[in-house]
Design a protein around this nucleic acid. Structure first.
Lengths: 122, 122
DNA sequence: TGTGGTACTAACAAAAATGTAAGTATGGGA
DNA sequence: TCCCATACTTACATTTTTGTTAGTACCACA
């Protein structure tokens, strides 16, 4: 998000890992602060910008916009604009986005187990 | 990595998402630049610090140290120090870390498919 | 004429992650 | 005595991500 400097070591390293490891590439696509949350809310169907915002009280409009734009560029979500006033914009998961859901389910159950374990031991 | 400020909105938002969504919690654990790569190299067994470094020519010692420390704190890897000179330190995946591997496999195949698709269409 | 709702954008600030360069302790061997 | 290897640490700089605040266009409706 924001500007990226294409001559930095940081950027280079990301490119290399992204191109060599498909799992890192995938992790980077879902890695933004709000990305997974948005996916989960869209899993049940289309939502308007304002509906997403209501479901995530802590996100700012700017962050929601940035994440949705990035997710659109990464083809995780599809954006549909209706020529109405006031404007109406709907977001929905692409097929790729939907195929991510079972993996997120597995991450969830791994995370739940792991959280319990670490809370027990520490 | 480095310092975190526990009174920032940024930190708060992460905490809220982490505690509410186990899949976001999990994603944050594997989200560092080099974390997944380290997991993959350790999947085949123990490795010393220097062996990891050789397998990842682009990582700096500082980044490798930070990631390993964070992964140790998050109980993804176990660190064993041998009282020798010169020092010998071995890293290996914990049980939790190993249980992550099938999920990384799925991420990899999703990522590969997704990469092909987006390259085809754009 | 003025207000309202929607989905944004822009300018800026703060925090977090990543990278650079140099230095540390240890004891064994030349 | 000096150099070597290992696994770090420290101080700093840069890049990236996230958050804050204040705006914008549009037209319907009162």
């Amino acid at each position: 998000m924001g500007q990226i400097k294409k001559t930095s070591t940081n950027y280079e390293n990301r490119q290399i890992l992204d191109s060599e490891c498909d799992e890192i590439y995938a992790a980077n696509l879902i890695g933004g602060r709000w990305t997974i949350a948005i996916c989960c809310y869209l899993a049940d169907g289309k939502l308007r910008f304002s509906q997403l915002r209501k479901r995530m009280p802590n996100i700012t409009e700017r962050m929601l916009t940035l994440h949705l734009r990035k997710m659109e560029a990464n083809r995780l979500v599809k954006r549909t604009v209706y020529a109405e006033v006031p404007p109406r914009v709907e977001y929905e998961l692409t097929e790729s986005g939907q195929q991510l859901m079972p993996i997120l389910d597995q991450l969830r159950s791994w995370g739940r187990k792991h959280k319990q374990k670490t809370q027990t031991y520490s």
